[in-house]
Design a protein around this nucleic acid. Structure first.
Lengths: 109, 109
DNA sequence: CGTGTAATCAACCAGTTGGTTGATTACAGG
DNA sequence: CCTGTAATCAACCAACTGGTTGATTACACG
């Protein structure tokens, strides 16, 4: 996952409407119109949100007659948690090392 | 973690400068001036980025003389992965259920 | 072919973001 | 007290975002 993709993916999840769309899609595919029913905004606005999520690689589209259902991509979500966890674990290791150092100093005093 | 905090945290990580700051802080605390050396932008701009990360709860500040070092908060990062993983796992379960259904239909045909 | 529906495109507007420079506050040390 | 340094505040600007409405494309069905 490239740096730009990380930009797009985190930015995509920074909006509550888009997070709600992700939550809904986690239970199965849905069309733009179905998703638009969840919000008090226009269908075009929802279409834009879906475009943001698609560009970020978080969802994919398919074709079923006139309908173009949206599907969530779990692998893209996993890439995000992977990025975060890398640094989180490094930081936690760092804190444990600091704690150990402080314990050692405590014993010596 | 409230909805607004999720907004702020994801938006904070949507910027490559701020992600680099997070990466650097995962190895230990650093001051604004130290962090500013990593980027070709003004110290004030870095100060703004740090304010964004602080408001999002991802980093904390402390006081050491004139210095005000920044520290990464692993718990805040964990809250983010927790949110993502919830829906990722739901989606993966959904796909496994679909696969199972397709297998059943395959057997019956 | 004509009609209805799903969805996007296009233009526009208000508010936010990321950067700049200049001035200001807070603290350490001689 | 005065000087130097760390950091923030304030004002400003160009670019982007999230919303709107109106027009357009793509497909299914009778």
């Amino acid at each position: 996952m490239t740096v730009d993709t990380l930009d797009l993916a985190f930015a995509a999840l920074a909006d509550p409407v888009r997070r709600t769309i992700v939550a809904r899609l986690s239970t199965g595919p849905a069309t733009v119109n179905e998703l638009a029913d969840l919000f008090p905004i226009s269908k075009q606005a929802v279409s834009k949100h879906i475009a943001v999520l698609t560009t970020a690689g978080l969802i994919t589209r398919s074709r079923d007659g006139q309908r173009r259902p949206c599907h969530l991509d779990p692998a893209a979500l996993e890439a995000l948690t992977g990025w975060i966890d890398g640094y989180r674990l490094t930081a936690e290791r760092q804190y444990r090392r600091l704690d150990a150092l402080l314990s050692t100093l405590e014993e010596q005093s």
